[in-house]
């Protein structure tokens, strides 16, 4: 599932299938050393390495590590947005075309694109004629849970 997700953005192979590890409904990018350590332990971890994403219903919710890796791929389609649109986007809003300052790799309606503020990825959406429909943004961190005490 995670591979189909990645394929929607780029055909560049930037994660080796061997390095990605599925843990229940989640995927991680695991350094060899950590993988070896985990294999010898009697219990399943709840988190290991860098978090790539999780399955939520029939969708993949990408992790920040995956978004940042996608953003580094030269072939990924991207839209760059204004400061104001960036803030609205992380508040779950769509991006109107007028707020797009630049695109990369010629996105067409129906394509999935990363939404960027300069070189920072804020999430992704579906490129449409009049806007980019918000499909995931990093404001999700604030919406997931109420913070708990240290």
């Amino acid at each position: 599932m995670i591979w189909t997700f990645i394929d929607r953005f780029t055909d560049e192979e930037f994660i080796r299938e061997d390095d990605a590890y599925q843990l229940g409904d989640e995927w991680y990018l695991v350094p060899q050393q950590l993988f070896k350590l985990g294999k010898d332990l009697p219990r399943q971890p709840v988190f290991v390495g860098a978090f790539l994403g999780r399955k939520r219903n029939d969708y993949v919710v990408p992790g920040v590590a995956l978004l940042d890796l996608l953003a580094r791929s030269r072939k990924t389609k991207k839209v760059f947005v204004t400061d104001k649109a960036a803030w609205l986007f992380v508040c779950k809003k769509n991006v109107i075309t007028a707020s797009i300052t630049k695109t990369e790799n010629d996105p067409q309606p129906g394509d999935w694109v990363l939404v960027m503020l300069n070189d920072e990825c804020l999430g992704f959406g579906e490129f449409q004629k009049d806007d980019v429909k918000n499909m995931f943004d990093i404001g999700d961190f604030l919406r997931r849970e109420r913070p708990i005490r240290a």
Partner: peptide, 15 residues
């Protein structure tokens, strides 16, 4: 898990 993800941790295994 949210903190480990948000803060870009990649060398941790949690139980």
């Amino acid at each position: 898990k949210n903190n480990l993800e948000r803060l870009g941790v990649s060398n941790c295994i949690a139980f």
